[in-house]
């Protein structure tokens, strides 16, 4: 299986409600002292494209192996797409719009 690189979408109460409605609440995991997070995954090519399109983003190779520090609006957009598609498999669709 090829590598998967997560983007962490942090989930507060408001986001949690939206995820519940979309039937995705069970996909949330607890990352830090109960702070919830839902992950969408990129493959190698998608990861490279994200890092290229959003130069502030950083691949945290040391600790979490995740893609971090995407601008807030970008993360909001990804989250909205997750809720809209009721799926976390949305990166292809998201990247089409970049």
């Amino acid at each position: 299986m090829s590598e998967k690189y997560p983007i962490n979408l942090w989930v507060n109460e408001e986001r949690y409600e939206k995820l519940q409605k979309a039937g995705l609440a069970a996909m949330c995991q607890e990352m830090l002292a109960g702070l919830k997070c839902i992950q969408v995954y990129c493959n190698e090519a998608q990861k490279d494209k994200i890092l290229k399109v959003f130069p502030t983003a950083k691949f945290d190779s040391a600790t979490t192996k995740s893609i971090e520090l995407l601008p807030r609006q970008v993360k909001d957009k990804i989250f909205d797409l997750v809720v809209q598609k009721q799926s976390i498999d949305i990166m292809d669709e998201f990247l089409k719009s970049c």
Partner: peptide
């Protein structure tokens, strides 16, 4: 704690525990 992870939370404006 990963510095990057914490910064990502702050950037998202989601209040951590």
């Amino acid at each position: 704690f990963s510095g990057t992870l914490i910064r990502s939370i702050v950037q998202d404006g989601v209040k951590p525990p």
